[in-house]
Design a protein around this nucleic acid. Structure first.
Length: 221
DNA sequence: TACCAGGAGAAAA
DNA sequence: TTTTCTCATGGT
């Protein structure tokens, strides 16, 4: 078993199943993937609620609405002007690709390339949609993944997205359910224990593997 | 007050 | 090709 598989066992044992993504539909995963770009999920939830309350939570409704109205709805998630453009581009792609049924019928690589061609959808957002929306076995690399695994010393934090993704996928079974759970566990670990600048390792389940954790353990002893 | 949060694209070097 | 800048609100 490689380092990535070992850490999954540690995290799953310590934190338990996370039951991600917190969305009720595939379209909501797409919207969430755009709105969560460099934003706290709490603020994304506010933005999604405001879209629902405004009866704008559908691709056709978002495209038909005045840009300023959509922007006002998603204001809590930050970068609202940029994200309005990105959300509109994502809705256009959603419809152009045949909606939920059309996209579900596409091979993973073709769907990934089609989504990457959409303005405002980068690799992380696209892989969120593929993994959490369409149950495709692609590993999501985010800021938490880079921070945690570079502190442990098994990845280069400056490595390209695709390079890191290949490292994870080469060490793990091709299993969308496990990729789903693993990424959710990484985010939970990052939020709770693996902060930037001022790590507070506390009862971190990977304390002994992490450079910051070892330093903290040495201070305690 | 300053930093951070489930990034991405454009511009500059 | 790589690095830096810009977009912006809300919580701690």
């Amino acid at each position: 078993m490689g380092a990535f598989a070992e850490l999954y066992e540690d995290l799953h044992g310590a934190l338990g199943p996370q039951a991600w993504w917190p969305a009720e539909s595939r379209f909501e995963v797409l919207v969430g993937a755009v709105l969560t770009q460099n934003a706290a999920w709490r603020n994304v939830e506010q933005a999604i609620t405001r879209l629902r309350d405004a009866a704008l939570f559908a691709p056709e409704a978002i495209l038909a609405a005045p840009v300023a109205r959509v922007a006002e709805c998603i204001r809590p998630s930050g970068y609202y002007n940029i994200k309005t453009q990105r959300l509109r581009a994502a809705c256009e792609a959603w419809l152009a690709l045949g909606g939920e049924q059309g996209m579900a019928a596409m091979p993973t690589l073709a769907l990934r390339n089609a989504l990457l061609a959409v303005h405002g959808l980068g690799p992380e957002s696209v892989d969120d949609v593929l993994l959490y929306g369409f149950e495709r076995p692609v590993f999501v690399i985010d800021a938490y993944t880079r921070r945690i695994f570079s502190r442990i010393g098994v990845v280069d934090p400056r490595a390209a997205y695709d390079t890191l993704q290949q490292q994870f996928q080469a060490d793990l079974p091709v299993d969308a359910q496990q990729f789903n759970e693993y990424h959710a566990l990484i985010v939970q670990l990052g939020k709770s224990f693996c902060r930037p600048r001022q790590p507070r390792c506390g009862d971190c389940p990977v304390l002994s593997r992490c450079a910051h954790g070892r330093a903290e353990m040495n201070q305690r002893s």
